[in-house]
């Protein structure tokens, strides 16, 4: 845990966004939209809230981070590389043969607590980690990011049941509610109605925020810290898919496509100036 200011965090988020888009551009493959919508949460976790040691990624008492929506790993890799979990140059090897930075997170990459990429499964693993922490009397917490489309998987709700039953108030689930998935908007493909209400009905404390507003994320973390009431936490965050790159914002087709040279240069410019 660090006392990084909101202003500093915003700068870091800008840097991570640029790195993630650069990685995807260089690999000409990967998922920019959801990387950008989750960028602020990932930044706040790694650069302020989480108790981690990049030099000792397997430290038993560390906070865990489970990117259940594993396709947006470039943004997590950017955070890990910047913090020195592995040499920052490796950020140029996304999706290359032999790289730690696989198309979807795997355990060989320092700082990855569990392999993900098949949607719906990460949250259950996060629950297992949080449960072990409780049983072992550890102070660590588990942070997990899930997609709004991903919440259509039944296993998400099976995991929620377990989190409630075992009173996992050390589990913090960030729902990246960008209202887009692959085949269209979430409302078109499969209406989620109100995921905040659903998590509340499953026994979570729900915090409704703008998930691209760093101040709100930090404030929410402060509120969560005050509540040891046996209930798992859900940050139900309205976000913008593609946040920070005008032509990607709220455009579904930028889910899993890499920018070309021109688009990349524009993205870098906008990210630099916009924040």
């Amino acid at each position: 845990m660090k006392n990084t200011s909101v202003a500093e965090l915003k700068n870091i988020a800008k840097d991570l966004r640029k790195k993630a888009v650069t990685m995807i551009y260089e690999a000409q493959s990967g998922h920019p939209g959801g990387s950008l919508s989750a960028a602020d949460f990932v930044t706040a976790c790694y650069f302020r809230e989480m108790n981690v040691d990049p030099k000792n990624p397997k430290w038993e008492d560390r906070d865990r981070f489970v990117l259940s929506k594993g396709h947006v790993c470039p943004i997590q890799y950017a955070a890990l590389g910047t913090l020195g979990y592995f040499p920052e140059e490796e950020l140029h090897t996304l999706r290359q043969e032999g790289s730690h930075l696989q198309g979807h997170p795997n355990m060989k990459c320092p700082g990855i607590d569990i392999a993900t990429g098949s949607l719906g499964q990460g949250l259950a693993c996060a629950v297992g980690m949080a449960l072990a922490g409780k049983r072992d009397g550890k102070k660590y917490r588990v942070f997990s990011a899930v997609g709004d489309g991903e919440c259509q998987e039944g296993e998400i709700w099976e995991a929620c049941q377990t989190a409630y039953k075992y009173q996992l108030d050390n589990l913090i689930v960030f729902v990246d509610n960008n209202n887009l998935q692959i085949d269209g908007t979430t409302d078109e493909v499969m209406p989620n109605i109100d995921l905040g209400d659903k998590f509340a009905a499953f026994g979570f404390d729900v915090y409704r925020i703008d998930g691209n507003d760093m101040q709100q994320i930090v404030d929410t973390f402060e509120r969560i810290k005050m509540r040891h009431n046996g209930k798992p936490k859900c940050i139900f965050a309205q976000t913008v898919k593609g946040k920070g790159v005008s032509y990607m914002e709220n455009v579904g087709s930028w889910h899993g496509v890499a920018p070309n040279k021109e688009e990349y240069e524009q993205a870098m410019k906008e990210l630099e100036e916009g924040f």
Binding site: G149, Q152, E153, G154, Q181, I182, D183, V189, M190
Partner: peptide, 28 residues
């Protein structure tokens, strides 16, 4: 929710009454 990459977009457009998208929920 992966009709786009599995190439069923045309089917969905042309034959909406024979098309269902259940979201990211394979077991379902």
């Amino acid at each position: 929710d992966i009709g786009k990459s599995c190439k069923t977009t045309d089917f969905a457009k042309q034959l909406p009454n024979q098309h269902v998208n259940v979201g990211i929920a394979e077991q379902n």
